[in-house]
Design a protein around this nucleic acid. Structure first.
Length: 459
DNA sequence: CTCCTCACG
DNA sequence: ACGTACGTGAGGAGA
């Protein structure tokens, strides 16, 4: 028997139990737990699916989820199956070499750490590490660490052992999660790696990828890029990535209908630089790197449901200063504050917020008496329509792109979707045509108040 | 199994 | 005064 996602394994019996037990034609769902009669199982499965459809389809209508279901989720499903099936090729020899390289680095770092600690211990144990750092070496006495050994805390500790531990953690992570594991997951039939996508397991409608998760392949650090580069195209093909530029900020500009933001996107300006120029009252040409980074953090913060505390922590500034920046941002982009208030109220009244496809994102604690939970729910309520609508847009684009590949009988295949990005394995002779298709499809999927911009790169 | 930590958008 | 940036999945430790 194939290894089946545990999630899917028990889904049908559980749906039958929930929706069909009172049905006159109810089938015996015990059949799903008896494994000896394959034919009976298939028959029962088909009957269950038909009966479930009869019960659930009217609920889709009643909940006004027609558009989200029939125009997004349902057509996306076979496309995701196709992408899973396509799989992606990895260079397992190169990954093995990286594993060996990492193994040596980890051994060297361990020795350095033991020497500095004057004791041998399990560096991978947060408990043992905290004891060494905070009790034996008495480090971090001037910071409130709560015995945490997270990277965020370690970065503040000015001692060589902290740097070594950070490096040890980074390399261990890459080795244990990626270079050691990925080669073992190559399907012997296809010679490729096949992930499993779920379109129904996130709050916002984003996809989730598992077994293995191919949406978090390292790419940021120097060592991470080495792993990223082990994902390759087969002979006479190239890997091509097409990603939406700042799609969430564009969705925000569209929803909140902020004229100056919309204009900025229409003119393809550097949005973080522009924001910095407004907040810090500086001509755009004179905006410093630091100011731009701050503005970037604020722009991201807005999408996350900003708080002075969160921004202060992110930028390592005082809460008061963060608070001033936020006020300044709201003054610059008139209408954002009102949009946020409106969205929170909608969440509070309905218990959910909606994305551009009409998908409902339920915000369970929005009316909680617990202020901490309620504030968290408020941030979710702000973030969900933005993140979820961006997910809708790329879902639609994925469906349309696969249709185009099918219609033109292209040899190129979609091999990954990573939230705002499609990765294709492109037949060399199709490269120019595929680029045109990608620009056309992805950029014209939606007519928002702002243009959608796509960047395409070979990798 | 839960917690901590960290990889990605 | 209180604890908080949004959304995921995976590996190791420790109970």
């Amino acid at each position: 028997m194939h290894k089946i996602n545990q999630h899917h394994d028990k889904l049908l019996p559980s749906l039958v139990e929930t929706y069909l037990t009172n049905n006159i034609n109810s089938i015996d769902f015990n059949i799903f737990t008896t494994k000896n009669n394959q034919e009976e199982l298939i028959k029962a499965t088909l009957v269950a699916i038909c009966q479930l459809y009869a019960v659930l389809q009217p609920q889709i209508m009643a909940n006004q989820l027609n558009n989200a279901y029939f125009n997004y989720e349902l057509p996306l499903l076979p496309v995701l199956a196709q992408i899973e099936n396509n799989g992606i090729k990895i260079d397992s020899l190169a990954l093995h070499q990286l594993s060996a390289e990492f193994k040596k680095q980890i051994a060297d770092l361990s020795l350095d750490i033991y020497k500095l600690a004057e004791t041998e211990f399990n560096i991978a144990s947060p408990q043992q590490l905290a004891k060494v750092l905070y009790q034996q070496l008495k480090l971090g006495e001037n910071i409130k660490h709560n015995n945490s050994t997270s990277a965020e805390i370690l970065e503040e500790i000015d001692h060589p052992i902290a740097k070594n531990v950070l490096e040890f953690r980074k390399i261990s992570k890459l080795k244990n999660t990626y270079t050691d594991v990925l080669p073992t997951l190559i399907n012997p039939q296809t010679g490729r790696i096949h992930t499993t996508f779920s379109s129904t397991s996130t709050l916002t409608g984003r996809l989730a990828s598992s077994n293995p998760n191919l949406q978090n392949i390292p790419s940021k650090t120097t060592e991470g890029k080495k792993i990223y580069n082990c994902f390759v195209a087969r002979k006479d093909h190239l890997l091509l990535t097409a990603d939406y530029s700042q799609i969430e900020l564009r969705v925000l500009a569209h929803f909140a209908n902020i004229t100056s933001l919309i204009e900025a996107f229409k003119q393809n300006s550097d949005i973080h630089c522009l924001t910095a120029s407004q907040i810090f009252q500086t001509p755009e040409q004179q905006v410093s790197e630091e100011q731009r980074n701050k503005a970037k953090a604020i722009n991201f913060g807005i999408i996350y449901g900003i708080s002075a505390f969160g921004l202060a922590k992110q930028l390592n500034i005082s809460k008061q200063e963060a608070s001033n920046y936020i006020a300044s941002y709201f003054k610059t982009y008139q209408g954002i504050e009102q949009y946020i208030a409106k969205t929170m109220q909608e969440a509070s009244e309905n218990g959910f917020v909606k994305t551009i496809s009409g998908r409902k994102c339920y915000i369970s604690n929005i009316n909680s008496a617990d202020k901490i939970l309620q504030n968290q729910a408020k941030r979710q309520a702000i973030n969900a329509p933005i993140q979820g609508s961006a997910a809708d847009i790329i879902k639609k684009a994925t469906i349309l792109m696969q249709e185009k590949l099918n219609f033109h009988k292209m040899a190129s295949k979609i091999v990954l979707q990573i939230h705002d990005e499609l990765v294709l394995e492109v037949a060399k002779e199709e490269l120019e045509q595929i680029k045109v298709f990608l620009f056309e499809t992805m950029q014209s999927t939606f007519n928002l108040r702002v243009p959608l911009l796509v960047n395409i790169e070979l990798r």
